[in-house]
Design a protein around this nucleic acid. Structure first.
Length: 121
DNA sequence: CGGGTTTGACCTGCGC
DNA sequence: GCGCAGGTCAAACCCG
């Protein structure tokens, strides 16, 4: 089921701790006076992971296209994009400012191609 | 050789 | 009108 991430759009309810920081989801540069019939194109799905490395391999190929520092965070944010031709899925990785071991991964869009690494024993 | 990664520059939108 | 912030792209370099 882990590989079936591209489906649910609901944010992860992994807020086990008390405060789970701010999670601003659902606010991009979308014009409100645009085609109403046009549904949300890219679903956003974010979840946190406790790992020392931010290179989370979900089975897809990612190509880094930028790195920018974020306010409130001493660590820079990494911008990744799916490699597959025709797959315009984006992924962002950000680290916590207080807990360096907490990595926040934000997926933008849904994959429309089979996974390459089906490393599921 | 190919793919992926890196860093700086560039562009756009918004605020003042 | 200009400055700032955030985001994206591109050229070069490195590794397998």
């Amino acid at each position: 089921m882990d590989k079936n991430i591209s489906s649910s759009s609901s944010s992860s309810s992994s807020s086990s701790s008390s405060s789970s920081s701010y999670f601003k989801l659902g606010d991009h540069h979308v014009k409100p006076s645009q085609k109403v019939g046009e549904q949300i194109k890219q679903r956003r799905f974010a979840f946190q992971t406790r790992s020392q490395v931010d290179i989370l391999d979900d089975g897809y190929r990612w190509r880094k296209y930028g790195e920018k520092s974020v306010k409130n965070n001493k660590f820079p944010r990494s911008y990744y994009r799916c490699s597959y031709r025709g797959c315009n899925v984006k992924k962002q990785i950000q680290r916590h400012s207080k807990d360096e071991e907490i990595v926040v991964t934000t997926y933008e869009g849904t994959h429309s191609h089979p996974v390459e690494k089906t490393s599921e024993s």
